[in-house]
Nucleic acid binder design. Structure first.
Lengths: 195, 195
DNA sequence: AATATTTTGAAACGATCGTTTCAGAATGTA
DNA sequence: TACATTCTGAAACGATCGTTTCAAAATATT
């Protein structure tokens, strides 16, 4: 009945995600988005609603991509559950130095989650998914005797998740890759310690 | 030669700090500040410069107040160094539930430190001071044999500092005080473990 | 009391904010 | 080919942004 869009929505969302990720919500203007997405203002509002709605969409995409990243490590079948968890930590730590963008979930959480329920809900969904992956891994590690009995997989999963954002933040502030590796090393050590 | 100000600058800075702390830099308008500080626009610009300069002043005040808070625990002379460190952790964790504001240094760091060197420098000064307090404490704990030889006071201090912000963030997101206490408990356990 | 200097209050600045409007170009369907 | 519908592009919307201006009120000093 009518013409199709001149663009692929998912690609435009990815462009917008990059801008929001780097600059944050409030510091990103619609003008920034129009330029980055290479799309007309009208088309933007027509296809994605207003700025807030577009941001939520980006945040959902971010959560989906982040979880997919972690899950890709799970397919390395030759690794035990604990080894997989350690591998995820190692991969993340290695990435900290090369990618100058911090965890968007944490960044958005600090900026908006205080008084924006929709944002908080989307972030929580993404966090739950990632922490769920870690928890499953640690539970299986516990079943196989890689993790001592007194350890709580849920709490440890949260600690690792928290660590990820803290390490990134530390690196942004102190630019000390060695320090980050040492902090991660302590966390890995604690996973293996008998108590 | 001329009249005095009708206000005490430090009090107005404290008011501005509250607003910046809660809303962040970009989401705070000069109008918000004029209303919160109960001061005229002209007086504001006359006494504190522009928005960015006022923010830096607030950030410095925050860093000073935060460090003073931690140092006040140090005066409890009946505690050993490690006990003092644990006490600081306990006090912080207890405060998480009652104060809905997160660590302003971390919040500002996520929002601005990426491309604002002045902000990053002020935050780093504040962080260094706090981490320095923790490091001193842990060094003395090591000297007194409360901390095992293989532990690095500097790295542990960073881990605790990171933990503070992570725990607060976790509470904001999951509203689970029990979880926060457990995470802090693990950190305290690691301080005392023999390796 | 006179003076020099600063603060104060109110108004307004241009710029940019997020958003809407609308006419015309484009295109899937009949 | 003609129609119905949607997308596109450019302009403009009112609101708010951070900041400046300036005359009048205030007051520490001489």
């Amino acid at each position: 009945m009518a013409r199709d869009k001149d663009f692929i929505p998912e690609e435009k969302i990815a462009k917008a995600l990059d801008v929001f990720w780097e600059k944050g919500y409030n510091a990103t203007s619609m003008q920034d988005l129009v330029e980055a997405m290479q799309i007309n203002r009208s088309s933007l509002y027509n296809s994605f609603g207003d700025k807030h709605n577009l941001f939520l969409e980006c945040l959902r995409t971010y959560g989906y991509l982040a979880a997919k990243d972690y899950e890709s490590v799970l397919t390395l079948k030759e690794l035990s559950p604990l080894e997989t968890m350690e591998k995820i930590i190692d991969v993340y730590v290695a990435g900290i130095v090369y990618d100058c963008k911090c965890c968007m979930g944490m960044k958005s959480s600090f900026e908006l989650a205080g008084d924006d329920d929709e944002v908080r809900r989307v972030i929580k969904t993404a966090s739950d998914r990632t922490i769920g992956i870690f928890t499953d891994l640690l539970r299986r590690a516990k079943e196989q005797g890689e993790l001592s009995d007194d350890k709580d997989p849920v709490v440890l999963a949260h600690i690792i998740f928290n660590g990820f954002c803290g390490w990134k933040q530390s690196y942004l502030q102190f630019k000390d890759a060695h320090l980050v590796k040492k902090m991660a090393g302590y966390t890995k050590l604690h996973l293996k310690s008998p108590f």
